[in-house]
Amino acid sequence: MSLRRTLRGTGVAIVTPFTGNGDIDFNALERLINHQINNGVEYLVALGTTGETPTLSKEEKIDIINFVYDKVAGRVPVIVGVGGNNTHELVKDLEKFPLEKAVAVLSASPYYNKPSQEGIFKHYEVLAASSPKPIILYNVPGRTGRNMEASTTLRLAHEVPNIGGIKEAANNMVQCMHILRDRPEHFLVVSGDDDLVMPQLACGMDGVISVAANCFPRQFSDMIRAGLAHDFVTAKKLNDPLLEAYHLLFAENNPAGVKAFLAIQGMIGNHLRLPMVPLSEGLYQKVKVYLNA
C-alpha cells in the first residue's frame, strides 16, 4: 500500500470535544467526524496533539480510537497518533493500542528531552521496528524544542523500513524543498503548517494534516485539491479568505483557537483540559467577527 496514494489530499487532526465537566463528549465527536467526511476531507487523524493527547489517559485514548473507527466505518482512512518522549513506553503503546484498522501511525519527534539528531533517528528506528503500521514522522519543533533536520528525515526515509512519510511543520520552506528533492518515490510528505501549505504544494507536497480543516473542511480541502491539480489561481482564491483565520487559530495556542471556532459554529462546546484554557475574551470576539463577516 502506498501512503502517497492513500493519504493524498487533506487529513484533519481532529479535536477532542469535552463536556462542561471535563468528560469526552462523544456526541460532539461523532458530529465532527461526520461534518469532516461529508465536506470532502480525504482522511482523519485521531489523537494528534490537536486532540489534547497529553491530557488524555491511555484508557481514554483507546476509547477514542475505537469510537473513531466505528463512526468513520471505513468511509475514509484513519491515522492514529502515538507520540511522546519515552521511547520504550511508546513501544508498549504500539503493542496495546487497537491499530488494526489504522492505515498509519503519526508520531511526533520527542519533546522536552531535546535529543540529538542521532537520538531522533534511533527513537524512530525503534518505533518503526515495533509498529504494526507504517510510521509517519512528525517534525514540529515549535512544540518539541528540537528540529528534525532534513538529513535525518531523509536518512530515516531511505534506511529504515516501515517509515512511510512525514508531517513537516518546521515552518521552513527550504527544509521542505530539500526533503521533497531527495525523498524516495514512495515517501509521503505532507504539511503541518496550514498557512504555508499552498506554496508547499507547488514544491511537490502530497497534501496536509490540518487544524484549520476542522472548521473549514470544504473550503480548505477544495483549496488543497486545486493545488494538487496545479490550479493555483483557484487555490489562491480559496486560500486568501482563510489567511486571517490561520492567524486567529494560532494566535494564543492550539487547540484553544480551533475549539473557539468550532464552538461558535455550534459543533462543540468551548471546553479544554488544563493546562489549556479557552481563548481570551478579546480574541474570542475577533473570531466571532471573522465568522460573522
Rank of each mutant, 00 (worst) to 15 (best):
L3F: 14
T6C: 12
G9H: 10
V15A: 10
P17V: 15
T19H: 05
N21P: 00
G22E: 08
D25Y: 05
I33C: 00
E42I: 00
L47I: 01
G48A: 07
T49A: 02
T53G: 07
T55K: 03
E59T: 13
D63T: 11
D63E: 15
D63P: 00
I64G: 02
N66D: 14
D70W: 03
G74C: 04
R75C: 05
P77S: 05
V82W: 03
G83F: 03
T87D: 01
E89Q: 13
D93T: 00
L94V: 08
A104S: 10
K114W: 11
E118M: 10
Y124K: 03
K133L: 04
I135T: 01
Y138A: 06
N139D: 15
N147W: 00
S151A: 15
S151K: 10
L154R: 05
L156N: 07
H158L: 05
H158A: 11
P161I: 10
N162H: 08
G165I: 06
I166R: 07
I166G: 12
E168F: 07
A169C: 14
A169R: 11
A170L: 04
N171L: 11
C176S: 15
R183G: 10
E185F: 09
H186A: 12
S191F: 10
G192P: 13
D193K: 11
P199K: 08
C203F: 14
C215R: 01
D222C: 02
M223A: 09
I224A: 04
A226R: 09
G227T: 04
H230F: 06
H230Q: 13
D231V: 06
D231G: 09
T234I: 01
T234K: 13
N239S: 12
D240V: 11
A245L: 09
Y246P: 03
H247C: 04
L249T: 06
A251L: 12
A251T: 14
N253K: 12
N253T: 15
N254P: 04
P255G: 13
A260L: 08
F261V: 13
M267S: 05
H271E: 15
L274F: 15
P275L: 03
P278F: 09
E281K: 14
G282V: 11
L283G: 06
L283R: 12
Y284D: 10
V287S: 07
K288W: 01
Y290C: 07
L291R: 04
N292I: 00
